[in-house]
Amino acid sequence: MPQHLLLIEDDARLASMVAEYLEQSGFSVNHCGDGLSGLAHLTQPPAGAAPELVVLDLMLPDIDGLEVCRRIRALPAPLSTVPVLMLTAKGDAMDRIIGLEIGADDYLPKPFEPRELLARIRAILRRKVDNPAPNGKTLRFGTLEIDRDARTVTVAGAACDLTSYQFDLLVALAERAGRVLTRDQIMEAVRGRELDAFDRSIDVHMGRIRAAIEADPKDPKRILTVRGVGYVFARQQD
């Protein structure tokens, strides 16, 4: 069965080209031309067409892609955890940072090569289904529990709101507790794209993870920054 994608893009010509390319690559694609219809499709999809990933344009005629992403993340689970790949204007770093902060899993600047879009989609979906560690289902650190099979995170029994990508980043760190990892090593561990020299998206995601799992994100006890190197997940917590 093909994996279903939801494409929210107001440029009909671009959407048609992208949908055709992705369908030739084995996906099923539903297209919506504005944010509200995209949200409606996500919450009430046609039979058998619940999307497994949303490709979301930033510039839309009704509400912008940032607002669409906010509303997706505010939906009840599991809808709130659907991966979102955001299409942004080339060189607009602020929009990319904001998109990551509100829950986008990845971004791709326009114009883009269809092959790169396909590679990004496959990488996100692969991270969604892969279990990176064969031994044990749940990681426990004090009151923090990470269930790798259910892909859930709780602190003292309360659910934490993380995107699929942020969950994988947390697992990559937690599995290597006590070991300092560079940003490149963290990205490699989740099979993500390589960082370029000016890409600080990993830091944005770490901020979101801290906000979800730390009692005080400004004074973290679980995910520590090692200046000039990267991050380390503390073994002793709570």
Score class of each variant (00 low, 15 high):
Gly157Glu: 15
Phe167Tyr: 14
His4Ile: 04
Pro46Thr: 14
Asp216Pro: 08
Pro111Ile: 11
Arg191Val: 00
Ile202Ser: 11
Leu125Asp: 02
Ala174Cys: 08
Met17Lys: 04
Leu87Trp: 11
Tyr231Val: 10
Ala93Ile: 09
Thr182Ile: 07
Arg222Glu: 09
Leu162Gln: 08
Val29Thr: 10
Val171Ile: 15
Cys69Phe: 02
Met94Ser: 14
Pro46His: 10
Asp92Gln: 08
Arg115Asn: 03
Arg227Trp: 10
Asn135Cys: 08
Phe27Glu: 15
Ile97Pro: 01
Ala104Gly: 15
Tyr21Leu: 00
Ile186Thr: 07
Gln236Ser: 10
Asp216Met: 06
Arg235Trp: 01
Arg13Met: 08
Ala123Glu: 04
Leu173Phe: 05
Thr225Ile: 14
Glu175Trp: 03
Gly35Phe: 06
Ile186Ala: 11
Glu116Arg: 05
Leu125Cys: 06
Val190Asp: 10
Gly48Val: 03
Asp168Gly: 02
Ser28Gly: 01
Thr182Asn: 09
Gly103Val: 08
Thr143Gly: 00
Phe198Glu: 14
Val229Gly: 14
Cys32Lys: 13
Thr154Gln: 04
Ala47Gln: 15
Glu20Arg: 05
Thr43Arg: 10
Glu101Tyr: 07
Met1Ser: 10
Ala40Met: 04
Pro51Asp: 12
Pro51Trp: 10
Arg13Gln: 06
Gln185Glu: 13
Pro76Val: 10
Pro132Ser: 03
Met86Tyr: 03
Leu53Trp: 06
Gly65Ala: 01
Leu195Ser: 13
Gln3Ser: 14
Gly91Asn: 04
Ala93Asp: 11
Arg122Trp: 00
Met187Glu: 11
Arg222Gly: 04
Ala40Arg: 15
Gly136Asp: 13
Ala19Cys: 03
Glu113Pro: 00
Phe167Pro: 09
Asp196Lys: 01
Arg193Met: 02
Glu23Gln: 12
Ala212Val: 07
Leu181Gly: 13
Ala40His: 05
Arg71Trp: 04
Leu75Val: 06
Gly192Met: 12
Thr152Ile: 02
Leu56Asp: 03
Arg70Trp: 02
Ile213Arg: 01
Leu139Val: 09
Ala19Gln: 14
Met17Cys: 09
Val226Met: 06
Asp11Cys: 11
Leu5Met: 09
Asp10Met: 13
Thr182Trp: 15
Thr88His: 15
Ile98Gln: 13
Lys221Tyr: 03
Ala93Gln: 12
Val82His: 05
Arg122Ser: 01
Asp184Cys: 08
Asp147Met: 08
Asp34Phe: 00
Ala89Ile: 05
Ala158Thr: 12
Gly26Asn: 11
Ala212Phe: 01
Arg235Asn: 03
Ser25Cys: 07
Asp184Pro: 03
Asp161Cys: 06
Val129Thr: 11
Leu53Ala: 03
Ala211Glu: 11
Glu214Trp: 13
Leu139Cys: 08
Gln166Asp: 14
Ile223Asn: 12
Ala50Thr: 09
Glu188Pro: 00
Tyr231Ile: 14
His4Arg: 08
Val155Trp: 04
Ala93Phe: 09
Ala93Arg: 07
Arg151Asp: 14
Val180Ile: 15
Glu20Asp: 09
Ser16Arg: 11
Asp199Val: 00
Tyr231Pro: 15
Ala49Thr: 09
Ile121Asp: 02
Val204Tyr: 07
Ala211Trp: 00
Val29Arg: 05
Leu181Trp: 00
Gln236Ile: 02
Val18Asn: 15
